[in-house]
Design a protein around this nucleic acid. Structure first.
Length: 514
RNA sequence: GGCCCCGUAGCUCAGUGGAUAGAGCAACAGCCUUCUAAGCUGUGGGUCACACGUUCGAGUCGUGUCGGGGUCACCA
């Protein structure tokens, strides 16, 4: 029988512990375990902007990726972009019909919202056409099929799959607008990806795979030409893998994707951050992989999360009750600004610092609010409560951190002098990194110049928030043909050895002092 | 209907088989010559949906019931 033993830790032990660990930049992080893990999250559609549900998804995906990283795993963040299908064609048709050449630039609108508006326009027009046909005496179901705008859209999807240049050009143009909009949002919320997959690519892989499965007898064909797999022996139904007309379904592209992931990355685990309405789909996917004897079937993990609901009820895109991500972010930042101005303690801040502060507070509040609830539970989003900065919230933690920094600063100055351990170690890693990055940049520039003086080299540094790794994007633009080559290197700062070997891999002399 | 998830304070949520079930919000009573009051201290507030079981011990595990949601598409 278990019992209780009450222990009290002496203050001296605590202080010793803190002094020992305060300087340890790897505190709480485990050694590399050489396990490769992919975390797929975000996964947007290219016909509408991100919404509140995407925010929960992004924060969950990004967080567990960073947690896995801190636990010593080699982590790849990925996203699958749903960039093809009838829904995309809807936006395209609507733009073609009603835009009269308008673009996000000409209307000063964010690209994803611009395209999303045409998706809405399509639905309005479609409804109108159905109503007109029904008024003329056509049954509703027939009207849904006969509406001219829907017929045009289906024709466009067909032409897209046939690869007609004008459709592909339009598709590329509009997707480009959407991606630009997404990038802005991702940058703002701090989502980043090591690899982006596109459904327009993976569905082809999936189709090839279905062909193989047919040949080796894992799948079977029905009279109408549709392809199926029988999962009744494991308590699931038959599952369609290819339509009678040979076009692919959702599952087709997911099989292509899972194969590509494991083939390219040799993963030990593949985590999918997807809503719980897809639990069944993921179960079937896993079972199909198992049936086909894929060795990685058991390495697929679905991190499902519950829907985010409003206090007023469920989010429905058709009824306009969807909370737009960008709008919500703006609202949070505006509230942070409002609170800050009310308290009026930021007189010595520059305009730039203020904007950064509002962004930090607003985003912190939102991230904490969406992450504090158990993922598998549905959660209710209360706009008023979420922008409340009191209580169990992100800003409370930020406030505490700020107070601790303030104490350390004062102790450092007043009692211990400039050379005190507190001062020396206030920002040890940031300082180290800045020094290193400056040297690294110089070395890269010099090396590039020596190789070819006509190229212009640019470097972008991304410092990951957990400080255990950072990225160097080295893009070399040739002045003559503007061709850009981007070299992306991820470097762990856990040990100097890693940095040195990275430099050697790049063929660059290791600086004497790093 | 089958399968899956959820049900804990007025509200939003924590809770790893172990002690008297905890936070925040809301309500009430206090606290700004002091390290940032975006804070702190205190008070009230519970049939852990219900029933039966397993166990020395159940909010936690099992079975059933009730309530809420999801899913079972040639949609994604």
């Amino acid at each position: 029988i278990k019992s209780f033993l009450n222990l009290e830790i002496s203050e001296k032990a605590l202080v010793t512990f803190l002094q020992k660990n305060y300087n340890d930049i790897c505190f709480g992080k485990k050694e590399l375990n050489h396990k490769k893990v992919m975390v797929e999250y975000s996964s947007p559609n290219t016909n509408k902007p991100l919404h509140l549900g995407h925010l929960r998804n992004n924060f969950l995906g990004w967080s567990i990726a960073e947690i896995l990283k801190a636990n010593g795993n080699e982590v790849y963040k990925s996203s699958i972009v749903n960039d093809r299908g009838i829904h995309i064609c809807k936006s395209m048709i609507a733009w073609q019909e009603f835009a009269e050449g308008a673009t996000p630039d000409s209307t000063h609108e964010k690209g994803d919202h611009f395209v999303g508006d045409y998706y809405v326009k399509f639905n309005n027009e479609y409804k109108q056409e159905i109503k007109e046909l029904v008024d003329k005496g056509m049954p509703e179901k027939e009207a849904e099929k006969q509406a001219p705008i829907m017929k045009k859209t289906q024709q466009m999807l067909l032409e897209w799959e046939q690869g007609k240049p004008y459709v592909l050009a339009l598709w590329n143009k509009m997707n480009g607008w959407v991606y630009k909009g997404f990038d802005e949002t991702y940058k703002r919320i701090g989502s980043d990806f090591d690899q982006t997959f596109y459904e327009s690519q993976t569905y082809i892989l999936g189709k090839e795979f279905v062909k193989e499965g047919l040949q080796n007898g894992a799948f079977y064909k029905k009279e109408d030409g549709s392809v199926w797999i029988d999962l009744s022996d494991v308590g699931l139904d038959e599952k369609l893998l290819l339509r009678g007309d040979g076009t692919s379904v959702y599952m087709t592209q997911d099989i292509g994707l899972v194969k590509q992931k494991f083939r390219e990355y040799n993963l030990d685990e593949s985590i999918y951050v997807i809503g719980d309405e897809q639990i069944h789909h993921m179960k079937v996917l896993k079972e199909i992989c198992r049936k086909l004897g894929m060795p990685f079937a058991d390495k697929i993990l679905h991190l499902s999360y519950g829907m985010v609901e409003l206090t007023t009820g469920k989010m429905k895109s058709r009824e306009g009750t969807v909370v737009d991500a960008d709008e919500l972010i703006d609202e949070m930042v505006a509230t942070a600004k409002h609170h800050t101005e009310e308290l009026g303690k930021v007189k010595d801040f520059t305009e730039k610092e203020l904007l950064e502060l509002y962004e930090t507070l607003g985003m912190g509040a939102m991230k904490f609010y969406l992450l504090r609830v158990d993922p598998k539970k549905r959660m209710i989003f209360n706009p008023e409560e979420s922008i409340d900065f009191h209580g169990f919230t992100g800003p409370f933690i930020q406030y505490t951190y700020a107070r601790i920094q303030s104490i350390l600063r004062k102790i450092g100055k007043e009692q211990m002098g400039e050379e005190s351990w507190v001062n020396q170690n206030l920002l040890p890693l940031e300082k180290q990194l800045i020094i290193f990055l400056e040297k690294f940049t110089n070395t890269l520039e010099q090396a590039a110049y020596e190789l070819n003086p006509s190229v212009i080299a640019n470097y972008v540094f991304h410092l990951s928030k957990t400080y255990n790794s950072f990225y160097v994007e080295h893009s070399v633009a040739n002045a003559e043909n503007e061709e850009k080559k981007i070299l992306r290197v991820r470097i762990s700062v856990m040990t100097a050895t890693v940095i040195k070997s990275a430099l050697q891999l790049l063929g660059i002399a290791v600086p004497e002092r790093m």
